[in-house]
Simulated scan of single mutants.
Amino acid sequence: MQSTRTSSLKPSNNRLFWVLLVGFCSFIYLLYREWPYLLMQSMRWQKDINEVLTNSLMDSQAHDIKTILYFVGLSFAYGILHSLGPGHGKVIVTTYLATHPTKIKTSLILTVLAALTQALVAISLVSVLLWGFNASMKEVNQQSIYFIDASYLIMAYLGLSIIYSAIKHHIHSNKQQPKVNLSINKIQLSPSNPSSAMLKPQQNQHHLSHKHDQHCGCGHKHFASAEDINQATNLKQYITIILGIGMRPCTGAIMVLLFSHIMGLYWLGVVSSFLMGVGTAITISTIALLTISGKKIINIYRKPNKLNTRYISLVAKLLAGLLLITIGLLLSQSQTYAVAPFLK
């Protein structure tokens, strides 16, 4: 009965796999084709907002409290609006949360720490180069490229980590599947009713042949569960997510810090950078909540089936890992090329 049920699920799993694979390949093709347009539009939008920030910062030289508050509020709005555009941070958050069981509290902590780390990296980078090495604006921009490339490579590494942990978890889950072995050890006739047969196992033989597993019921924990094994992996992936997003310093924050240093208002640039990080955290946290809510809605209307769910989870994580690897490498190449990298 069990084998019939399992075999009946395999065709649907195969169809689902090919549907997801075709959808993933189509998305990668569209992303590759539209990448130059998306990149140019993002650069134009960012340039316009940066000009507004620069003009507001110049007006703040008068030390007028209203002008300073306007600049601070504009920096906060910049963090919200800038993070709405194309960016690898949103791809990392949505892809990971959509394919991994993560609690709302954990997802919010991840997004807030990642956004604040991004602001802290920008402030630390500019402060060290300006105050420690008297670097010029050109040198600061050149050094920031290394951090940006590092964040994209970390993104690709996260994709590899997701693929590796998904395959490892799937193999471990298959090994933990209970094997039911039915055997008759001894047939004994009951004295009260000789015509009836009672099936009694030999206790000594049962004790000697007892195998410890998660279903043996002896009260001992003989090996770690899948959740226990994944706990350490998830912690590493959380750190990778924070570094993958935070290692890329915000270009708007770097620009504000450089101009504020020239104008003698560096402290205002630091405040502005942190507020950009807060605005970014709000946007990414909202996207994370929407992702988790959408996943829960899908799970409500989806028919529960442990075997089917396990294969869907495996395929989804594999595709998510491939997506992060592809976009991470694509973004790292776009640091040099303004068009699709494979055209060069």
Rank of each mutant, 00 (worst) to 15 (best):
Leu243Ser: 03
Ile162Asp: 07
Gly321Phe: 01
Glu51Pro: 09
Ala253His: 11
Asn234Phe: 11
Ala114Lys: 00
Lys317Cys: 03
Asn204Pro: 06
Gly252Phe: 01
Val256Leu: 14
Arg33Trp: 10
Ile241Leu: 12
Ser12Cys: 08
Ile298Phe: 12
Leu16Ser: 00
Val315Asn: 12
Thr6Gly: 01
Gln203Gly: 04
Val52Asn: 07
Met137Pro: 08
Val140Met: 03
Asn55His: 10
Leu57Glu: 01
Tyr266Gly: 14
Asp59Thr: 00
Lys138Tyr: 10
Asp59Pro: 01
Tyr337Thr: 09
Asn134Thr: 14
Ile65Pro: 10
Gly328Val: 01
Tyr29Asp: 03
Leu258Trp: 04
Thr233Met: 07
Ile148Gln: 08
Asn55Pro: 06
Leu289Thr: 12
Leu39Gly: 06
Val112Met: 00
Cys25Asp: 02
Gly23Thr: 07
Met276Ala: 05
Gly246Asp: 06
Ile245His: 10
Gln333Val: 02
Gln202Arg: 04
Asn234Ile: 07
Thr67Trp: 12
Thr54Ser: 15
Trp131Asn: 07
Ile300Tyr: 15
Phe76Thr: 02
Ile262Gly: 14
Tyr29Pro: 05
Ser107Met: 09
Ile104Cys: 07
Thr4His: 14
Ser190Ile: 13
His215Val: 06
Met255Val: 08
Ile184Phe: 10
Lys47Asn: 01
Ile241Val: 15
Gly294Phe: 13
Met255Asp: 10
Leu189Gln: 06
Met1Leu: 12
Phe27Trp: 01
Phe133Ser: 06
Met58Tyr: 11
Thr102Val: 15
Ser124Gln: 06
Gln142Met: 02
Tyr37His: 09
Ser196Asp: 09
Ser272Glu: 05
Asn299Cys: 04
Ala98Thr: 07
Lys103Leu: 09
Ile239Cys: 11
Val126Cys: 10
Ser56Arg: 12
Gly89Ala: 14
Ser195Ile: 05
Gln333Tyr: 04
Phe223Lys: 11
Tyr78Lys: 11
Val180Ile: 14
Ile145Gln: 13
Trp35Tyr: 15
Gln2Ile: 09
Tyr164Glu: 09
Ala114Leu: 01
Gly264Leu: 14
Ile104Gln: 12
Ala281Gln: 11
Pro178Leu: 05
Asn204Gln: 11
Ile171Cys: 13
Val180Ala: 06
Ser127Phe: 12
Ile109Met: 11
Gly252Ile: 03
Tyr96Cys: 03
Gln203Phe: 03
Thr326Lys: 09
Ser3Gly: 02
Lys168Met: 10
Tyr78Pro: 00
Val93His: 03
